[in-house]
Amino acid sequence: MVRVVLLALLLSSCAALPGQTGTGQSVPVQTIPAGTPDAATAKAKLAALVVQAPASLSGYERSCDKGETCVFGQPWLDVDGDGCDQRSQVLARDLADVVKKEGRCAVTSGSLKDPYTGETITSVSKIQIDHVVPLAEMWRSGAAGWDVNRRATAANDLRNLLAVQGKVNQSKGDKTPDKWMPPNTGYACSYARIYVGVKAGYALTTTASERTALERALTSCT
């Protein structure tokens, strides 16, 4: 009987956050973009976000291939004019033991402690750059009314970009925190802080269910 009670307590303590997939393991990962608010500030910013139903995705087009009009501009831009595009900047920021092409910015090798899974990735080809707040969600929550320059700035904002395992990034897609959270529960607090900081920084709206999921994730902050 005692063993049953202990097992029940262990299972309840490992309850997954809303939208969480995978094993729910908790691995500390320190990757947090500069400019991300601390937990207390994130909670205050989240409470101040306007809550409303998401707008239509009508007009949204991310791909720039085959003459299509990509509403967030051509990826990836060299925002600060240093000769390195944002993808290269994120890889250099988030990976350890980085090796670049001689005289260039392109990262050819390195090691990533993936924040979303807690796994170590050593092949750059298996790493993708994730928009923590998906571009489609930006569109639904306010970006549809911006001009293309503001959208391009948001799409290349380093505060919203993380190097992550490609496979888990594909599983996330355009899902919001009420539908998806990192399988690595140890990153829930950081993920919510980043997400809220970006939404607040661009005065984007939130839905009630999204806010609830973010509030719960922020309660995991220590």
Rank of each mutant, 00 (worst) to 15 (best):
D82R: 08
R140D: 03
T206K: 05
D178R: 00
R87T: 04
E68L: 07
L57T: 14
Y195D: 06
D114G: 00
R151Y: 06
T36Q: 06
V132Q: 05
P182H: 03
A188C: 05
S12N: 04
E210I: 06
R62M: 00
K100M: 01
S56G: 10
A106W: 08
L161R: 04
D147K: 13
E137C: 08
E210K: 14
V124D: 01
K43Q: 14
A163L: 09
I121L: 08
T205S: 15
A152T: 08
T153Y: 07
N156Q: 04
A44P: 00
L77N: 09
K175D: 14
L7T: 09
H131M: 03
A106D: 13
S58A: 15
T108N: 08
M138I: 04
G67C: 05
S209H: 04
P115I: 08
Y116V: 10
R3W: 09
G81C: 07
P177K: 03
V168I: 15
Q20S: 08
T219C: 10
V90M: 06
S12Q: 07
Q20M: 11
L77H: 06
R87E: 05
Y202E: 11
L6V: 12
R150G: 12
K167S: 13
D82L: 09
K199Y: 07
I129V: 15
A203D: 15
P134D: 05
S26A: 15
A213D: 07
V164L: 01
L91W: 04
T153P: 01
I127R: 00
Q86P: 02
D94Y: 01
G67W: 06
L10M: 02
L91Q: 11
M181Q: 12
T205D: 13
Y191K: 07
A16G: 12
F72L: 05
A15T: 14
P177R: 02
G59Y: 06
A8M: 11
V4C: 10
D65W: 01
A143P: 15
H131P: 04
A40N: 12
G22A: 11
A53L: 13
D147I: 06
T205F: 13
Q74H: 11
D147H: 12
A16C: 09
T219D: 14
P177L: 01
S109M: 03
R3A: 14
L77D: 04
L57F: 07
D80T: 08
